[in-house]
């Protein structure tokens, strides 16, 4: 088992209503020099979060105490750019277990699910309503239910369902990852590989 099981998550959320948040913003390249997976949360959104002299930028959401929680809500096309899994590690290490957006970049989505973060893709309208709810009340609770595949704004009951394939759902629910799956089919792979062209 590679990470904690994901079942139902009820939490307040941190809003980041910016589009095209790319992985260079999530974790700038200069912080990719570690040879371990932990510790990246400290540099999550480093250049948006801190000034050049390492003092916090007061207007950035992670530096604003009224927002907290295990859910990050981002604008459209979240996680574009580099394939660095470090972006997902940084989000996880910071304490988020779920990212909500109206659109995710492919590699980011894959990377997230591989390490136990649930990417929840909602409609633009619903995303807008989440942002508005958080704006009105920063303590707004969201409930993400993986088994029912729904996300709900608890104060209003406003809810939307989201897509996830049954394989990934099974993995996340049980804390399994692809490596566990592949290890179990090694013989089949070996036979296939021996007959392959390259």
């Amino acid at each position: 088992m590679a990470y904690d099981k994901f079942t139902v998550l009820t939490s307040s959320a941190v809003p980041l209503p910016i589009e095209n948040v790319d992985t260079d913003q999530i974790i700038p390249a200069r912080f990719l020099k570690a040879t371990k997976r932990e510790g990246f949360g400290d540099n999550l959104f480093r250049d948006w979060r801190y000034n050049g002299d390492d003092t916090p930028k007061q207007d950035f959401v992670l530096n604003n105490d009224i927002y907290s929680g295990q859910i990050l809500v981002g604008g459209k096309n979240f996680g574009s750019g580099s394939s660095r899994e470090h972006a997902a590690w940084a989000i996880y290490d910071y304490g988020f277990r779920c990212v909500v957006s109206s659109f995710f970049a492919d590699i980011f989505k894959n990377n997230s699910m591989n390490i136990g973060i649930l990417p929840v893709q909602v409609s633009e309208d619903f995303l807008d309503r989440i942002f508005k709810a958080i704006e009105a009340d920063p303590q707004t609770q969201l409930e993400v239910d993986l088994s029912k595949q729904t996300i709900t704004i608890l104060s209003t009951g406003d809810s939307e369902s989201f897509d996830i394939n049954s394989y990934k759902k099974h993995n996340l629910t049980n804390g399994f990852d692809d490596i566990d799956y592949l290890q179990a089919m090694k013989e089949e792979i070996s036979t296939f590989a021996q007959n392959s062209r390259y």
């Binding site: 580099s82 394939s83 660095r84 899994e85 470090h86 997902a88 590699i107 894959n110 990377n111 591989n114 390490i115 990852d177 692809d178 490596i179 799956y181 592949l182 290890q183 089919m185 090694k186 792979i189 590989a193």
Partner: peptide
Amino acid sequence: GIGTSEVEMVLSSQCIM
């Protein structure tokens, strides 16, 4: 391009999903 978990997959099983 792939993420690091997938690098681990390819090393250990020559496959990705």
